[in-house]
Write a protein that binds this DNA or RNA. Structure first.
Lengths: 356, 356
DNA sequence: TTTAGCACTCTTTCGCGTCAAGTGCTAAAC
DNA sequence: GTTTAGCACTTGACGCGAAAGAGTGCTAAA
């Protein structure tokens, strides 16, 4: 960390060319890149000695590193950072890829759950990395509307529409003899007083009042409130899904047991992942590159929040080696999350996704 | 496969003792077991030479195998099979373990989904293997009861209770102006005619009839039926969950990349797992031991179906190396699936799980 | 029938020399 | 002043053989 803060501003054109070449070769092969192998690339009109000198300087500046004396160079986190921010050309999705994405977006309208699932699969196969999909992680959704389904004399199903457009249900069994009338009254009370609240918003006076209004069937309220409480709490746990974990094994950087163990452990400790996602910027594609302490070494995580009506309801991203094909991954994640934002979830109509 | 069909009947007491000792030592250490290391075990009163002779015979009979000429012996699949069927003492769950299991069963009553999830976590930590939980895989559930929730003038939520006691919901947006009356009529038609059917059960005459009954709002029927069709189809896909994948990495038999790759691939190709589970016996704990062609080499899968009201709605099991602590795993899986059978899902009350 | 002893086999481990890749530096060329 | 050619040097990867260790099967004695 000598002077690596004013990232990249001071680099000459030639240094940029060489740095970019090193990074792209490394992304393709995974091997350290030596001066000679660069010379053979068509767009580098310098000799290996010149390149060596430049590479030595790039190393001093913190963009490259040698795994050991006598090996080629490998990009550092700083190097990737600069590449992503300044050097990289953005990838144009092909027509086929756009069509696949649009298909998913249109067909699965309305259920964030299944849209994320299919999108994960598609992205995993398009990019050859592991896809990460998160559902309604932050700002626990509240309940917007209540309804019911009568099961038998003593049991019913409480149906709740949540603020993130998902639906929760809960079986409730009580000691009161139920009928449609009672339940209709119950839900209208709930819809009047128990909407939009968080777990702390449920107060004893509210419950007392509700019990009073229910009259003889007042004993209903207690189990119902308990159910509501659980639902709110449950929705506070995020749901993370991984697709294409096996693809990671194809990359040599993950092909040793120790590294793989770390990755799997990270995937299973979902809270850590959540922290990264929650701490990120809602409005742009976020790129975390390994060994920040947050991620496993040599890995990178590219993701973007999905917003519905201005509210973040989930996120979708790609996890892979730090030598990732950033341009393609970024384009894909961006296209998908933009297309989703504000369009789906609302309903079945809507010809989503005007392209580009 | 010399004469390995009449499994184990012809074994002398001494052979059984030795076989059992070899298997249990191997389960504990993972290493091939040699004659000398057995002598040191307290319950073996024979010299290494005697044991060598017996082991040679056990090898001929197909219960043991030598990885190479000068190594100790390792159990074969047949050996494990015999051990599980005849040699093993069943593990008694400790009081603490039973309490943990009961807590889960009681607290999470009513939602198969979350009960399986917590149970998976607990079993994974109790047994130190990977837990596999499957939800409603077989005999696609049918729809038992319909209800609705009015969202706005043109949109409503169709709520369906399925035969496996799960609940599905679907957003539906239509061109008709909606109100409670219309939807009440709609659901009563659905509850009369569209209950208990499979995707093939939906016929054109049924739809025509329903449209006629809805009168002016007949155009509702088509999107609703489409939604029903999708729900039935979606429920035909099983949902498999894995917990504690990282634990596998602790066992040397999975600590090489090639093997790990196979395992992860198998976990991601859920259909294969489903096939194993579907083909199994509903009424007992099923034990598959590796290299049947179905499972990855050196692995084993112990699981049992969970039944609700006589119908299989899921399964829970444990996946690990074939040198697995079968007795503990079997007891755990059995206790849990028995406690669940027919008790939860129905409702919130019910003091489940009388112990033992 | 059981056991002690022994020669034999096979894997694992370690050290060691060779090889190839890639570097930094110096001196010459442009 | 910049670029390039040439060269000595460093370092990890690879392959080989020797030695060590574990365990066996067989024979002969108890």
């Amino acid at each position: 960390m000598k002077n690596g803060l004013v990232v990249g501003g001071e680099l000459s054109q030639r240094k940029k060319l060489i740095l970019r070449s090193v990074i792209e070769s490394h992304i393709a092969t995974g091997e350290p890149i030596g001066s000679k192998s660069l010379v053979s690339k068509s767009d580098i009109p310098y000799s290996s000695a010149t390149i060596r000198n430049e590479m030595a300087e790039l190393e001093n500046m913190g963009y490259l590193i040698q795994p050991h004396t006598s090996a080629g160079r490998v990009p550092t986190t700083l190097g990737y950072r600069f590449y992503v921010d300044a050097l990289m050309e953005s990838y144009k999705l092909t027509a086929t890829e756009i069509i696949s994405l649009n298909n998913i977006i249109q067909n699965k309208m309305g259920e964030l759950d299944s849209i994320l699932r299919s999108a994960s699969k598609l992205i995993a196969s398009m990019t050859n990395y592991t896809t990460v999909a998160v559902q309604s992680p932050y700002g626990a959704p509240t309940i917007e509307q209540y309804s019911y389904m009568l099961l038998d004399e003593r049991a019913f199903l409480l149906v709740m529409r949540m603020s993130d457009e998902s639906v929760s249900t809960k079986h409730i069994r009580v000691d009161v003899t139920l009928d449609d009338n009672i339940l209709r009254r119950l839900t209208s009370i709930l819809n009047a007083s128990f909407v939009g609240i968080t777990s702390e918003g449920i107060t004893l006076p509210m419950m007392m009042q509700a019990e009073k209004e229910m009259g003889a069937a007042g004993s209903l309220i207690s189990p119902v409130v308990k159910a509501i409480y659980e639902i709110i709490g449950k929705n506070e746990e995020a749901d993370i899904n991984f697709e294409g974990l096996n693809k990671l094994l194809e990359y040599p950087e993950f092909s040793n047991v120790e590294q793989m163990r770390r990755v799997i452990r990270m995937f299973e400790k979902k809270e850590d992942f959540m922290k990264i996602i929650e701490g990120a910027d809602d409005d742009k594609v976020n790129i975390f590159i390994g060994s920040n302490g947050e991620l496993v070494d040599n890995s990178a995580f590219v993701f973007k929040t999905i917003k519905v009506g201005g509210r973040a309801v989930g996120a979708i991203g790609v996890f892979g080696p730090s030598r990732m094909d950033y341009s393609k991954v970024i384009s894909t994640v961006e296209y998908l999350s933009n297309s989703l934002a504000g369009e789906q979830v609302i309903g079945l109509l809507g010809d989503a996704a005007d392209k580009d």
